[in-house]
Structure formats: C-alpha cells, structure tokens
Amino acid sequence: MAAPIPFDTERYSQIGGIFAKLGARVKASRTFLLATVVFVVGWELVVYLFEIPSYLLPSPSNIAVEFYQNFTIIWRSTLVTAYETFAGFFFALALGIPFSLGVAFYRPLRNTIYPATVALQLVPKIALAPLMITWFGFGLTSKILIVFLLCFFPILLNGILGFSSLGTELTYFLTSTGARSKTGFLKVRMPAALPQLFVGIKWAAINATVGATTGEWVGGDAGLGYLIKFTSGDLRINFAFAAIVTLSLLGLFLFYLVVLVERQLIPWHVSQRSTSGMV
C-alpha cells in the first residue's frame, strides 16, 4: 500500500526546507538589525539634541572613534577576559555535568556534597572575589575560579533536574528492555536531559563574563574589567564605554555559541522547532 517516497523527492523537499528556514532566519535577523540601527541612531540623536556632555553619556560615534584609536589595548584586554571567561566556563561544564549526573543517580552524593554546594551558592560571589584574589593572586587563576563559581551552579542545578526528570512511563519502558545502564543513558536519559541542561548552560554563559569582570575589578591588572575600572576612574568615559560595548559583545558571542550548539544538538525540542521560538 504505502508507496515509499522517492529518495530524490524527499531530498528536494529537504533542500526547500533549508531555504525556507534560512529565509525566516534572515527575516528575523533583519528585524533585529533594524531595531539595533534605530537604537544607535536614536542614542546619537539624543546626545546631539540635548547636548549631553560626553563625560555623562558619550555618543555612539564618539565610542566608535575611541574604539578605533585604542584598538590594540582593547583587543589585548579582550583576549585576557575571553581567556578567563572561556576557561572558567568550560571548567564548569567539565565538572558540572558529571557532578549533576552523580547527584541525580547516586544518593550519598545527593546527601553530602549537594547541600554543601547549595550553601556555598548562598554566599554572594562578589563577597568571595577578594578571597579568591588573596588565595590565588592577581593573575588569571583567581579570575578563572570566580567564573567557575558563577557558572558551576546553574549547570549543576539544571543538570540534576534534567537527569532526574525522566517520565515514569519512559522509565518503565527503559527498565522493561533490560537495557544496560550505559546504553540507557546514551540513548534515552542523556538526550531527554539535554533541553534542561541547556537552560543551565545558557545561564552559565551569561554569568561567565560577569565573573571575569568582577574578578578583574576587585583585583587585577589586565582585562576588560580592569580597563573599565581604570578608564572610568580617569573619567575617560568614551574609552570606558568602548570597553563596555566590547565586553557585551564578548558575552553575546559566548551566549550565541551555546545557542548554536543547542540548535545542532536538540533540533527536536519544542523550543527549537520554529524560528519564532525563543533563543
């Protein structure tokens, strides 16, 4: 009865689908681009019309000029901050995911290390920053650790939730197949946990630059956070703004990197099915 769909037809419709998706993506990003342009032009106009002095709020064009003039130092600072951000973030990923697995599936861990981590989480990270500097010095290590602290918890919490939320009936099905735990994990538990895990990873990605900047701010001699503190202290607000914008871009870069990976890994999830969904 059921005639198999000819291979090339399916292929063709797939290509059509890709174009349709690309079109929607371009459309969506066009709206975003337009909004950005309106925002920047509006900002420029407000500064110009109300004659706001640049030590209060520099105009985008001033910031751009400043960025261009100080490109070398901004770029070098960016590399430092990016290194701290990425190192701390991936460190948190590498520890957070196995850890959440452990807590989800191994009761002794759930009863010991988990409450301890929660307690640690209740301490504001900013309060820990000076301690980290005292313990690990002004260099990169202390910053990476602060980033780690800020990224670890969201990954852990959402990982635990993801790994321990497999539906009752799906669990019954899994059990009734007698699957080895590794097979069951790879084919069912892990993919089922990914959407929730990604909530945590995105949250961590947002926290990461905050952590690096905080560390540099509290005690450091390099990086964008240090640059912002230093230049704004000197009332070089244009320069500070150029560094702030760069910092935002760095944060956005990491965030969208995660979003990109998410799209590849869980295209089947409700949140990913249409381009009109949330990021």
């Binding site: 539906g167 009936e169 799906l170 019954y172 099905f173 993919p191 089922a192």
Partner: peptide
Amino acid sequence: IVFQTPVLVD
C-alpha cells in the same frame, strides 16, 4: 508494554 500515552521520544 503499551501505556495509556504513547511515550515516544522526540
């Protein structure tokens, strides 16, 4: 086993 809901994976 067939359950009351399909219990398929997306």
